[in-house]
Design a binder for these strands. Sequence first.
DNA 1: CGTTAATTATTGGGTATCCAATACATTTAA
DNA 2: TTAAATGTATTGGATACCCAATAATTAACG
Lengths: 119, 119
Amino acid sequence: MPKGNYDICPPECCDMRGMLSFLILWLLSKKPMYGQELAKEIGKRRGTKPNPGTIYPALKELKKRGLIRSKKEGRATNYYITEKGRKGIQTACEYFCKAFGEIFRERMHISARKAEQIH
Amino acid sequence: MPKGNYDICPPECCDMRGMLSFLILWLLSKKPMYGQELAKEIGKRRGTKPNPGTIYPALKELKKRGLIRSKKEGRATNYYITEKGRKGIQTACEYFCKAFGEIFRERMHISARKAEQIH
DNA sequence: CGTTAATTATTGGGTATCCAATACATTTAA
DNA sequence: TTAAATGTATTGGATACCCAATAATTAACG
């Protein structure tokens, strides 16, 4: 798996990483996953896949706080979101959309503007 | 200025801070601002205002990388985005909307769903 | 004019996230 | 059966961001 094999590439000007726990909870709210599956899904969206040294301590912490639970199944350890985690991520998504919503709406506005100009 | 005097409050389940440089460049791409003005604007959106120990080193670094420039005007130091910064933030906003867009669209879908149910 | 408020900037210590390396376990492929 | 692939988990060092405290400067207020 080459590092750069994504449709998306992070910008050079500023660090766009972070909010790892948020992304993990959000993905797990969709379906249970094992560690590397999560890392791969994050990589698909962010263009950079978190290393084991990043993902596993984060999962460990989320488990410690009761937001997820895990179950070893063969060589994989599958992670499941708890009810507490589900409530938490709902609130977090609302917050995210409020805090960063303007960037999105601005972008959609620009896109709509460009579409107009083509007419 | 009380800390909690915002319309928005960060969630408890996970850390939603970060991407400070991105936010700074984005705000400066709208209009020049001085340090505490930037901090205030970030606070309005994120519900937490970055401390001087956070904002000024970040501004210093952005300046060092040629993405912004500054000019002391009285007690204020106003910060301006450079052309390099403007190009950078454009790319970064595109990236941001791609990387996190799904969270938004999901949220808007849920909102639309709820509106339907009311009918 | 003196006092208060606002702004700047730094320092020291902390934290979440990050990478790279390493070792071990399990599954899959040859 | 062996080798390769995949997944787990930890450790050590690094980085961006973070807070709180501090000191200096400038502006605003009474």
